[in-house]
Design a protein around this nucleic acid. Sequence first.
DNA 1: GGACAATACGGAGACGGTCTCCGCTTAGCA
DNA 2: TGCTAAGCGGAGACCGTCTCCGTATTGTCC
Lengths: 193, 193
Amino acid sequence: MPPIARPQRADARRNYDRLIAVASEAVAERGADASLDDIAKRAGVGPGTLYRHFPTRQHLLDAVFHERIVLLRDEAARLVEGEPDPVAALEAWLRAFIEHLRRYRGLSDALKAIYDKDDELMIGAHDMLRWSVGTLLTRAQKAGVARTDIDGSDLLRIGHGAGMVVEPGPAGDERAERLIRLLMDGVGTTTKA
Amino acid sequence: MPPIARPQRADARRNYDRLIAVASEAVAERGADASLDDIAKRAGVGPGTLYRHFPTRQHLLDAVFHERIVLLRDEAARLVEGEPDPVAALEAWLRAFIEHLRRYRGLSDALKAIYDKDDELMIGAHDMLRWSVGTLLTRAQKAGVARTDIDGSDLLRIGHGAGMVVEPGPAGDERAERLIRLLMDGVGTTTKA
DNA sequence: GGACAATACGGAGACGGTCTCCGCTTAGCA
DNA sequence: TGCTAAGCGGAGACCGTCTCCGTATTGTCC
């Protein structure tokens, strides 16, 4: 799936951005099966416009996914900057990551695919995630408060698994919290060499 | 979602069983979105018949899910009987479990739901899974070769996460193997108190 | 600011999957 | 063999997907 270039004309760009924003809501509300015609309608454009910008549902989902990952990277950057405790920072980011997975459940296939796909969007997402978790984990490891026999990829994958297994909404909040504590437990140096 | 009683008349029962068998194939091949009319056609019945037995797609998926879980329980029983090494038995079952998840990817939502749903089918599935993993794990724990601070539920959940994160087909085989080894590593008594 | 490409829009409609309704068929029983 | 309850199945309404192409808008050049 080749990446779709960002459109040039002002009206096109406006519609493009709007579609992503509306789709983002729709995916959170109704999952990956949200009606595309409905998304187009809510964005105030015709179906033709949606399909020109995003030839398949997957293109649209990928774009939404990318947008959410940007937010997660920003969160990581903020934590590196503003949270001096490396463990607290890592935990906060993992919490945000798992929240993302629970809320945008329909996007978890996209996350699974970042390892394989090779278009610009997905490579970008992969890099951002690696940077986020890598930076936070390395910092904790250098401070001697995280075991050194795991890497960002491990943490990402296990966080992914955890996020997918916990239902969204308040119903799963407590279980999510338990899993996060378990994970952080496993990351700490006190647990294992 | 109330459970659907198994039909009584011979022809109805024949169609019911056939639909599940065909649906099972279809889900493995095309995922949870497989066309229901197509499943009906492949089973040699009209769509009306399918929808009478399984009012919603979820009913059909649940039935297929239940059938697969029966097989996993049988596998556990066989291992308890025929594999004297408790660790090897547990590992073999986990491998089968993860294989199931990779192959019947579309059923993972059903697995997630067994904790909440309260119809007969799902309670049965939950019990069978708990029995399977519980029996194998307890045996290993009693033999002193598995840590005692985890229970079947933990193992089920973590196996679930692992199975969902690895792509199906030969492409993911190696990664699946790595995760299984990691899991078994974590289960062993050498690792943790 | 007018005119002209180039770019983009949008909705009618074909297509395919979902699900229902109800007239017809069959199994099982006496 | 005849009766009746149970079950069958397909026509068709409905809804979401996606395309095609006539129309509209943008940006540019003078």
